[in-house]
Computed example of a mutant assay.
Amino acid sequence: MKRLIKGDGILTINQIDEMVCSSQYDFLRSNPHLKDRIIFLTLGGSYSYGTNVETSDVDIRGCALNSPSDLLGLTNFEQVVHTQTDTTIYAFNKLINLLLNCNPNTIEMLGCKPEHYLLLTDIGKAMIENRKMFMSKRAVRSFSGYAMQQLRRLENALARDKMPQGRREEHIRNSMESVIRSFNSRYTEFDKGSFVLYTDKSQREDLDREIFADINLKKFPAREFNSMINDLNNVLSSYEKLNHRNHKKDDNHLNKHAMHLIRLYLTCIDILEKGDIITYRGNDLDLLMSIRCGEYQKEDGTYRQEFFDMIDAFDARLDYAKKNTALPESPNMKHVEEFVMEVNRRSLNE
């Protein structure tokens, strides 16, 4: 149980702090990688964004120093994941590498509201105060990738359940073609052949139309061919794995995906325009919660055109921000390295 009492609803910071001090979180104080080595603990997920509702889980995120044996010996600590409490604590060195790439799940740990930090040492405070050293144009690629994942989930669910079978097959084909377009960069041998996908009348009783493929390959590596087929099969599987739905539950999930899609745009634009990470979306809560509550979803479960117009507008704003940002292409590695060396020196002496 993540809550103090089932049915408590939205928890206050004091209640969450009390919860983290309870026996169910004793691993934070007994795990050899974490005991006396955690430099900060903070809220993650909906509670950190301000988009939490009564059914929201409490996610805890944090960072712990690497031990001397990790730094000088043979041990290797990367993270502790405690699934029962939705807690993830990253090793300092691993977290640095994720932050350098503006990984959304980790960079947002540095931009939480001050009161959302449940534990904060001097080193943790210094890391948060110096968070801008991790900001760069790499955020565009990382946040856009996560946003596209949310959009794909949304489109997949709508295509699977809301579209006529013929249109759904066209949508699946488009998704598969986007995978094929990546083959040129991922497989060096792809210039030896081609994949062409199209839809046509199906001979199967359960389909009106079906996706077909014309494949022309010569002396093509079998292992790479197998990887390509697996990539395409994964797209098909994502549409076909659910045959029965709890529509109310799934609509709630769809609206949550839609909300997080817009939140990712807003957060990335902040990074590019302000050079900072702002995790708690206080100024955007009315918009985000209206999406989460289904105000952009039609009665048939699809989304109003205004929602997709919003995505287009944020996409254009993100493109403009990318072209006009003052952020560098990559972080200042010398600055980051000096910080990492100082922290690890302190870790060796503690």
Rank of each mutant, 00 (worst) to 15 (best):
L261W: 09
R245L: 03
N255I: 05
N14Y: 06
M333L: 09
G193P: 10
E78R: 15
D284H: 13
L318R: 06
E306V: 12
D319L: 14
E169T: 07
D250A: 08
D206A: 06
Q84K: 15
N97W: 07
M127D: 05
E115K: 14
I89N: 11
L43D: 02
D208L: 05
K35C: 11
M148D: 11
L98G: 07
E155S: 12
G282P: 11
D59P: 07
S202V: 06
G282C: 06
I291Q: 03
D191Y: 15
Q79C: 12
A321T: 01
H116C: 11
I211E: 00
C102F: 07
D270W: 11
L110N: 01
G282M: 05
D319W: 08
K334Y: 10
A213L: 10
K162H: 12
L28F: 01
E210K: 15
A222D: 13
A64S: 10
S202R: 02
I311Q: 04
V58H: 08
E295R: 13
S144K: 10
R61A: 03
V340T: 02
D309A: 12
M310A: 01
L264T: 09
I5K: 15
R346S: 00
Q79A: 04
E273K: 14
V343K: 01
A213D: 05
F314D: 00
Y117Q: 03
R29G: 02
T55W: 15
Y296V: 07
F195V: 13
L285R: 11
I215S: 00
E205Y: 12
N344F: 00
S227W: 10
S142N: 04
T121S: 14
L41S: 04
D251E: 14
